[in-house]
Design a protein around this nucleic acid. Structure first.
Lengths: 168, 168
DNA sequence: TCCGAACCCTTGGATGTCCTAGTATATTGC
DNA sequence: GCAATATACTAGGACATCCAAGGGTTCGGA
């Protein structure tokens, strides 16, 4: 743990922005910087909770996605689209999960270009355990008030839609 | 640009959580996942805007921090604390900025353990230009409504305080 | 005074992300 | 039917982050 700062560095940055004549964008600057920092804090908590399973957040997300797939298998490109990461990131995650024996690659029955990824029995077990731990250790102790969660989901959902993530 | 998904994948995940008996943590799960994704989108925009300057966000943040320092110089550990990143990340950023001639290392006058980083004239110019571009291209077009910015700053500020970032 | 503890920075390693380019397979259009 | 275009995955490279460990400097108590 690092010693806490006496003052909020982002609030200071916001003040600096206002004092330099950029008051019109000081608020979005502060909000965006806060999002970056919050993500960093949350990611550290998540990775800490997943460490005992030999998982990272990227790998966990893939496992969780597969565990919810009806057929239990997904094409790499589908996983890439749903997780909204670059295809090479999925290749990377699958490589490691496959080495760990948690997923398996198999050829697509009709499209020779496509590779399917499928949970192994162990992968399904690990996904279940990891989800339980994340739920209790991270999501269950997020520190966000209920009404703030609603606000976050609404605000960020709107942002993501405007950014072109989905058309829903 | 990737084709938008027909449905919000995070809203789907939230539904999955509710259907699997984890309704009590479905909202924090969704909010946290949304923060991760939003950070990714914002980071991509920022890096895109900084690319013409040969800067990344990490390096920009360091330049900006130095440009606001009264003395124009900061010890590495101070920069690490204010930017809230690991000391090795600062070492990395300084290495690259120094190679680019934007900052310079100098020994601390009284403490032999400490290294000071200082903006060069060119570094100060680049910082100014990059800030102008970020302000107009990213912060000025964040896509957040004014009242939502206030909410974000409040909610995330509270979260960061609880997480031990500052005591303010 | 002096040695151990504390602090500062750097090196090396592991991971994740993205981009670019290359190979293989499908689909499309003439 | 075949060539051109599009799609799917992977290899290699650039960067960022963190952790663990090492070497140098300073501080503090016996």
């Amino acid at each position: 743990m690092i010693a806490p700062l006496p003052r909020d560095p982002i609030a200071d940055a916001q003040r600096n922005w206002e004092e330099h004549g950029w008051a019109d964008v000081a608020a979005p600057m502060a909000a965006i910087t806060a999002i970056m920092r919050t993500q960093q804090i949350l990611l550290a908590r998540i990775e800490g909770a997943l460490k005992p399973f030999g998982l990272t957040f990227a790998r966990y997300e893939l496992l969780a996605l597969l565990s919810f797939a009806r057929s239990g298998a997904l094409p790499m490109n589908k996983a890439s689209a749903l997780l909204q990461v670059h295809p090479t990131s999925v290749t990377n995650a699958v490589d490691r999960l496959e080495s760990a024996g948690l997923v398996a690659r198999s050829p697509h029955p009709t499209d020779g270009r496509t590779t399917l990824i499928e949970l192994t029995a162990e992968g399904r077990t690990v996904a279940k355990s990891a989800t339980a731990v994340l739920n209790t250790e991270v999501f269950g102790q997020s520190g966000f008030a209920q009404e703030d969660l609603d606000q976050l989901i609404r605000i960020l959902g709107s942002f993501r839609r405007n950014a072109g993530d989905f058309t829903d």
